[in-house]
């Protein structure tokens, strides 16, 4: 139906202009710019001087950045292999529609609409050595108070816990997929004498495979780009114990080391892509992005 009321090439193009401008300015240009700036020596003013891959070798030799990569990998693993499995567990339980499942689903997602700033301040307060919730519990149980976020040995775990237990996002995705599984499969299994556990293991989990791979991929990609909660709760400290690539990028930029910050940006994009491709390969789903939930 390309006739009356149809758009001429000009009209179609005109309708694409607003999105085109926004996308070009804030996706395409920054992408090209970052790639280019990472190959130069540049401090924000004056001309960029091309230096090849120098920023990258410097970055990889930087102990702080290596620590940041390690912390990001820890975040990615925690998100992919703790957060997503917990979300899957809850999704499978809710898919059986227990009493109040809709309310539970809504409440589980609530923290996801609250700003990281607010959550980080609340969790910092919960971890506070003087008046915090967790030290209140420790004291009640007769233990010494701890400085969870100030102690390099507990800081990373404490920040990760404050974020990984919020399962709402992946739970909703997995629940939708679980509810899409045809009911007849369970009926048939019941007739064959399979109990509830067997049904979940033999039907639900295999049927959720595609969505699970997508969720793990997304969770790990988010882990590789983790920034806000850590920046707000510890600033990357104590002694860089919780720093991430994003925090390192921000600090480099703050110190006007623009070209190194750009190299860190390229690294961030690259590692994120590697994670996505690697997880697809390892978990063996050809195209999780389109296969999910179908």
């Amino acid at each position: 139906m390309k006739n009356r009321g149809g758009g001429s090439a000009f009209k179609i193009a005109a309708f694409l202009v607003p999105v085109g401008v926004l996308f070009a300015a804030f996706f395409l240009y920054p992408f090209v710019f970052t790639l280019f700036a990472s190959l130069t020596r540049w401090r924000g003013i004056g001309a960029m001087r091309f230096i090849g891959l120098g920023n990258f070798s410097r970055l990889l030799g930087d102990p702080t950045f290596r620590l940041a990569i390690r912390n990001n990998v820890t975040w990615a693993l925690a998100a992919g292999f703790i957060q997503v499995p917990l979300a899957a567990l809850v999704a499978i339980l809710l898919a059986r529609r227990p009493r109040g499942w809709k309310v539970l689903r809504t409440v589980y997602f609530l923290p996801n609409v609250i700003s990281t700033v607010a959550l980080a301040m609340v969790w910092s307060a919960l971890y506070n050595p003087q008046y915090g919730f967790f030290n209140g519990l420790l004291k009640l149980a007769g233990f010494e108070a701890r400085n969870f976020l100030g102690d390099p040995s507990t800081a990373l775990v404490s920040v990760i816990v404050s974020s990984v237990l919020y399962i709402g996002y992946f739970m909703i995705i997995l629940l939708a997929a679980a509810m899409n599984i045809p009911q007849e499969l369970y009926e048939a299994a019941k007739i064959d004498g399979a109990n509830a556990f067997q049904q979940e293991f033999l039907i639900t989990l295999p049927m959720l495979r595609g969505t699970l791979v997508t969720s793990i991929t997304l969770a790990m990609a988010y882990g590789m780009r983790h920034f806000e909660a850590t920046y707000l709760m510890t600033g990357g400290g104590p002694a860089y114990a919780t720093t991430t690539m994003g925090i390192d990028l921000f600090l480099k930029m703050d110190a006007l080391r623009y070209s190194e910050a750009s190299a860190a940006g390229v690294f961030l994009i690259l590692l994120g892509t590697v994670v996505i491709v690697a997880i697809r390969r390892i978990l063996g789903t050809k195209d999780p992005m389109s296969e999910a939930g179908q």
Binding site: P30, A221, G265, L268
Partner: peptide, 15 residues
Amino acid sequence: VLVPILAFMVPYFTL
């Protein structure tokens, strides 16, 4: 959606 916007701090700021 797959792009980490975080990586664009420098170009956003300079632009």
